[in-house]
Design a protein around this nucleic acid. Structure first.
Lengths: 203, 203
DNA sequence: AAACGTAGTGGAACGTGTTCCAAATTATGC
DNA sequence: GCATAATTTGGAACACGTTCCACTACGTTT
């Protein structure tokens, strides 16, 4: 008997399972993109992914797991895209701001999607630790990569860099939450991020 | 006809209404304290506050409004208690850390309560803007007050102080979320806060 | 090819947040 | 004190996340 759960195990299962998993995440993405958190209804995801409700729950044990997994996929892709690119800017603050503004632009282009994923992330509890960890790693990687300008050879990332990256990630998340929940505008959010980063990264 | 909603209007209504409102918030507090977010069930709150379900919804249009209002009351009280007190510590960082650690101790003493209120805060959307604002103000006030050592006379709080306080508030919130959702321990959270604040407030 | 175990299906059912409504109660203006 | 408006009540009903179950389909072992 296999206790393995197709969504969390490192063993990704058969091709059919990988295919189902992808269909489910794609459906989640589409629904989130067009209708936000509320539109990602488990029955709707199951139907759009052409999968029974029970199967959906076998792959992702809750709506939050599902959305955070989708977020993880997004961030992973973004981190990979960014990694193969040099980051312009003379100071750490400039480079980090460049990257974060670029990501912010992407997110503002899909506000519903961003809302859905952010809400899920903020609501997740420890049972979602694995999925959360993926997101946290990608975020830290994005920030440290920006700090060091993207030169691939000497990624001299020490502990302090990671600590700084985590603080920046915190501010980023809080700012994202304010924006997503309509508490502050895109411009205010950008300004706030800039303030914070220049405060944290005065070289 | 009065469009006024007893919970959001500045007009607090009759004594009976104020009394009901208090009973509701008290019931919320009790349930949150003993069982966390999930235990704050609208039917249970209504019953414990000795109020009909419909009335509960008239006072607080959603569970999130209810919990964020309860959080606001908590923070307000904390801010007031803190305001009438001098904050020990030689540097801004020391004083802010002193205050935040003190608040953290309080929160760790009531983990369920903290979980409930924090989850609600993080999940709130723009319809909860008013209640959120109360919390944000209290938080900023607590931090700026700590920065200036609590000398009541010359509260020379300028815009930059507020910006800094907001960044600290962001980190605080993120740290709180990690702790509340079981992603990091109290010790890790404290260490992370210390790192962040020393980074932001190197005098 | 038969038997077996695992995964997927369809759908009923439950819990809790939320909405709605008619009747009862309370407050207000005259 | 009465008429009228506003509020509260009790409870039914609905929506959606989640659980559960009997059944079917599939793949593996022998």
């Amino acid at each position: 008997m296999s206790i393995a759960n197709p969504s969390t195990s490192d063993d990704l299962g058969s091709a059919a399972q990988r295919e189902r998993r992808k269909r489910i995440l794609d459906a989640t993405y589409e629904l989130a993109k067009s209708g936000g958190f509320d539109a990602v209804q488990m029955r709707a995801v199951a139907e759009q992914a052409d999968v029974a409700l029970g199967t959906l729950y076998r792959y992702f044990p809750s709506k939050i797991h599902l959305l955070v997994s989708a977020l993880g996929r997004q961030f992973d892709e973004a981190a990979v895209r960014l990694r193969e690119r040099e980051i312009p800017g003379d100071t750490q603050a400039d480079r980090v701001l460049y990257v974060l503004k670029r990501m912010a632009r992407g997110m503002q282009g899909d506000p519903k999607l961003t809302e859905a994923l952010t809400r899920a992330f903020m609501f997740a509890d420890s049972s979602v630790a694995n999925e959360i960890h993926v997101v946290g790693m990608a975020m830290t990687s994005i920030v440290t990569h920006a700090m060091h300008g993207g030169v691939p050879g000497e990624e001299a990332v020490d502990d302090e860099d990671v600590a700084i990256a985590r603080v920046i990630g915190d501010v980023w998340l809080s700012a994202l939450v304010s924006w997503v929940t309509g508490r502050s505008s895109a411009a205010e959010t950008a300004a706030h991020m800039e303030t914070a980063i220049r405060l944290i990264l005065r070289d």
